[in-house]
Design a protein around this nucleic acid. Structure first.
Length: 620
DNA sequence: TACCTTGTTGCCCAA
DNA sequence: TTTGGGCAACAAGGT
């Protein structure tokens, strides 16, 4: 029997410790072993990724490459630059690969990409090994145990996974590594591995450094500028990072050990009691980016906390609040994503309630999403007030110091405390601005280092009361929520320095200071810091009214009215003073009562008026 | 079957 | 100054 020639495809598993997929690859007892990273134009151009996440990724790739070289001086992470669907087949042909191994990943882009690679491999006679490792449980097993679906509540989910076999124990890192074979790339032409289809619509253009070519240079060659398959640099990307949060397995393990060192803190951890205003140091572990990129194994984390809980003298906290609980939230949302088509958007998503948000993702008549450019133009033209407010939120100039500080924090550092994310997400969606959670999720995609499609979409659905959470009338105050955890406003002083002259009394609500006090603080509202873009209370009341109507209408993203574009009109008939649709029109609750004769006409007229109400929302 | 209880994280107002 | 009920109602388990 010929010996295996293995290509190990690194993705979001940038570690050597507890990597079941890597262990499976080495168990094939390979004659040659190629650790490979495909530098994918999809991420470079078509997904909105800011500099801080790139920096974290490059750190992590470099770290894993160095660790591979430590195990075998001939080895490293071989970064090959081009689309995986053309690069991998060319590599396995040229390098005589018999087996390709990767860790399972199930977000929508990677699932599609991996299916393509699998079928190409099959055709080429290359054996594919896909191994679970990114999560504690296999989403497919959870769905099976749930008889085809995943419970919509955390408690029910917990009971379900309790019946599954416990997450496996972490395995040690490899102690040796087979050498790669020859690494030639003969007769490789860029036209066979074109990146222009992605490059021509570069969504990350605005990050590329001013004065440079305004485009990324990382695809100038296949094996990097020196031809040594090196990890690309920020310079090649044309970007400059601003965050001090850095990647790599070694940093992950160091931070992890430092945290685990305090057994009492680990055992007694209660997420809702940690402070969203703390940033130096943060009140939570800040290990989320490492879980996202796989520089820290979730099993290593899980089993260590269990051990600490067993031996700790204090009474351990329980899920959902505990650290174990936090890891289970990750499992819960990954399983939701696996069980829900179109989970990262509203249209077609069966769990996301349909709400008549402003700035919803636009689709053409075939149901294809419009390009970013087209969509932005449409928003600017058709929903100018909402668009302006959204931009103010994104850029941290809403006039609410707490919201602005958090938004500037995430932009600069790539991180925000979970409860801070709650606060800004509530404000943007159901709390005050009534903007679609899809827009907020996109902004987090750009800024957050720990961005994960499943967790991000799920949390935006949670916060906007679109799914999982339903008490839409519980609204975080954009003005004073932060005050509870930090009466001194340290976070605001750090990220909105123009407000630093205000006393503790006014730091969260500088508009309440007299003109004289504003002058003394060196910050006049409306001149040195923006006026509030909305009246908190008034905006909230409008939101609640619209939310109530949406809840009464009970539409979800997969409803025919959502797909055919009549959902907004339908929702308007549920506003106060409007005649509800009859049963024939599809609603059961009010259909029980005899509909009035003129209900249809009334509904129609009501719709027009209601439309006005909705539009008025954006205009004060 | 119908009803009741409970749930990661809130705010406001009255006493 | 602190505390508790109200908000208005979904999912899912229990009775």
């Amino acid at each position: 029997m010929t010996k295996a020639r293995v290509l190990y495809w690194f993705r979001t598993d940038l570690r050597l410790h507890d990597s079941p997929a890597l262990a499976a690859a080495l168990k094939l007892n390979p004659e040659v072993f190629y650790p490979v990273w495909t530098w994918d134009p999809h991420y470079v151009y078509s997904q909105q990724v800011g500099p801080n996440r790139w920096q974290f990724l490059l750190d992590s790739m470099k770290d894993v490459s160095e660790s591979l070289t430590e195990l075998n001086s001939d080895s490293q992470l071989f970064v090959v630059r081009g689309p995986p669907a053309t690069v991998l087949p060319a590599l396995w042909k040229e390098w005589g690969i018999t087996d390709i191994v990767w860790e399972k990943d199930d977000d929508s882009y990677t699932a599609e990409r991996d299916a393509t690679i699998s079928s190409l491999a099959e055709k080429a006679g290359v054996k594919v090994h896909v191994v679970l490792g990114h999560t504690l449980y296999d989403s497919a097993e959870i769905i099976k145990a749930g008889k085809g679906s995943v419970p919509q509540s955390y408690q029910a989910f917990r009971k379900l996974v309790d019946k599954l076999p416990k997450p496996s124990l972490p395995i040690p890192p490899p102690t040796s590594l087979p050498s790669p074979g020859p690494t030639t790339l003969t007769k490789w032409k860029r036209s066979d591995h074109a990146v222009d289809p992605w490059r021509l619509n570069d969504l990350n253009r605005e990050w590329r450094e001013e004065g440079s070519t305004e485009r990324d240079l990382s695809f100038e060659s296949f094996a990097g500028p020196e031809g040594d398959f090196a990890v690309p640099t920020m310079e090649e990307l044309g970007m400059v990072a601003t965050s001090e949060i850095r990647g790599g397995e070694r940093r992950a393990l160091q931070r992890f050990e430092e945290w685990m060192d305090d057994n009492e803190k680990v055992a007694e951890f209660k997420k809702p009691q940690t402070s969203p205003a703390a940033f130096e140091p943060p009140s939570t572990t800040q290990l989320s980016p490492h879980l996202k990129f796989g520089t820290l194994s979730p099993r290593t984390f899980y089993h260590r906390v269990l051990t600490i809980n067993r031996t700790s003298s204090s009474t351990p906290s329980e899920p959902p609040e505990s650290l174990i609980g936090q890891l289970l939230w990750r499992e819960f949302f990954h399983a939701q994503q696996a069980a829900t088509p179109f989970f990262t958007r509203i249209r077609g998503n069966k769990v996301s309630r349909y709400i008549s948000w402003a700035l919803q993702t636009r689709y053409d008549e075939e149901g294809e999403m419009l390009s970013h450019e087209e969509m932005e133009k449409a928003f600017e033209r058709e929903e100018p007030e909402a668009w302006e407010r959204f931009k103010a939120w994104k850029e941290g100039r809403t006039g609410f110091p707490w919201i602005d500080a958090l938004m500037r924090q995430v932009r600069e550092t790539g991180w925000m405390h979970h409860l801070g994310r709650h606060s800004v997400a509530c404000f943007l969606t159901r709390g005050q601005l009534y903007v679609s959670w899809e827009r907020g999720a996109e902004v987090f995609d750009r800024y957050l280092i720990d961005w994960d499609p499943a967790l991000n979409s799920a949390n935006w659905q949670w916060l906007s009361a679109s799914a999982f959470f339903h008490s839409f009338y519980r609204v975080y105050s954009p003005a004073t929520y932060g005050q509870k955890s930090d009466p001194t406003g340290a976070l605001i002083r750090r990220f909105c320095p123009e407000l630093a002259g205000f006393s503790d009394k006014h730091i969260y609500t500088p508009w309440s200071a007299s003109k004289k006090e504003q002058e003394q603080a060196g910050c006049v509202i409306g001149e040195d810091y923006p006026e509030r873009i909305v009246d908190e209370k008034e905006a909230k009341e409008k939101c609640l009214k619209l939310m109530k109507a949406a809840y009464d209408a009970k539409l979800h993203g997969d409803d025919p009215r959502v797909l055919d574009g009549t959902a907004d009109e339908y929702l308007e008939s549920f506003l106060p003073g409007k005649v509800k649709p009859t049963r024939e029109e599809g609603i059961s609750k009010d259909g029980k009562r005899k509909a009035q004769d003129d209900s249809k006409a009334g509904g129609g007229k009501g719709s027009k008026k209601a439309k006005q109400t909705t539009l008025d929302f954006g205009k004060d």
